[in-house]
Simulated assay, not measured.
Amino acid sequence: MLVRRLIARLLDWLLVLVVAWPLVHEPVLVVACAVVYDALLLRLNTFGKALTGLRVVGSASGLSLRRALTRTLVTTALPGVGAVLVLVGLGWREPALMAGLGLQQPWVVIGEHVTVGPTGWVASLLLVGGFALLVLSAVEALDLRGTRTWHDRKAGTAVVRLKVAANS
């Protein structure tokens, strides 16, 4: 079950990356698109979960919007922010991201933007913080007890396998 869940998550992230990156070309906005995609489709079924035969279900009262958002923040926003922090800590030079963080200078020298990326302890802090969020996300996702991980227990959800209809 854990492998199916990880494959489903990877497929969902790849779908969002392939669709959103050419449109927005900005890591922070790609993460935002992934959060919106996950939150909106969680109550139905995401593309990755549909392909792997999984579905997120709530308690007997159903999967409320609050539970879906709680689950999405832990499963999508947390690792997404971690990935963005790692990219920035490594010196990612995406103009819109750097300008948004106040790290890009407006000069133009011989037709090229001169950027000032994070250096020293700021870069190290961003890199360590990003890796910490990614490790936390991985540990949290691997805390599987039956059909429920930690984020499922906190949101009151479970991931179940869809029954395959038998041909009669």
Rank of each mutant, 00 (worst) to 15 (best):
L90Q: 05
G58R: 03
Q104K: 13
V19R: 08
A50W: 09
V57Y: 04
T149D: 03
V74Q: 04
P79D: 01
T72S: 01
V122G: 02
L15A: 10
L134R: 04
F47P: 03
R161N: 14
K163M: 14
A96G: 13
A60C: 13
L126E: 00
R9I: 14
T46W: 04
K49D: 10
A166F: 09
S168K: 11
T147G: 08
G156R: 11
Q104H: 13
V56C: 10
G120P: 07
A141P: 03
L63T: 02
S59Q: 12
E112W: 15
F131L: 08
V160Q: 12
A20G: 05
L42Y: 06
D143V: 11
R71H: 08
D38G: 10
V109Y: 14
W92N: 02
T119Q: 09
K49G: 07
A39F: 06
G111F: 12
E112S: 14
T157L: 11
R71L: 05
R43F: 07
C33I: 11
W107Y: 14
V36R: 04
V114T: 13
V18Q: 12
G80D: 00
V18D: 10
P118T: 06
L87G: 03
L97S: 01
T115Y: 12
N167L: 08
V84A: 06
A50I: 11
V74R: 02
